[in-house]
Amino acid sequence: MIGEWLDIGPVGQIAPGTARTMPVVGGEEIAVFHTLDGEFHALVNKCPHKHGPLSEGIVHGSVVTCPLHSWNISLKTGEAQGDDKGCVPVIPMRVESGRLYLKRDVLLAAAKVGA
């Protein structure tokens, strides 16, 4: 029986204000963010602009600034902020008993597994 939520490990593996990546075999890499406010967010690790690795950007508020051309991407919606237009898929997350979970079906679709 496959669970609805995928356990990706303890919260402590991502320091506040940083991100870690999660490779997906046969699909797009996911970036998992931990904001300074203590929120967790997961996005496909590709800026909608030129596919920069968002996981390497500076995290501020619930926004990450892409390291390639400084687009600001909302961690909550995946939308580019300001005058820039574009969106990256967001995967719903859950934190329970100190562990992080990703919504499995959205993850599979977002990472384009098997596509």
Partner: peptide, 18 residues
Amino acid sequence: AELHQPLAQFRPLVTEKA
């Protein structure tokens, strides 16, 4: 070291790759 290392890799099940 964590800056350079990814989290555990996710390997979807064969049935999920359809």
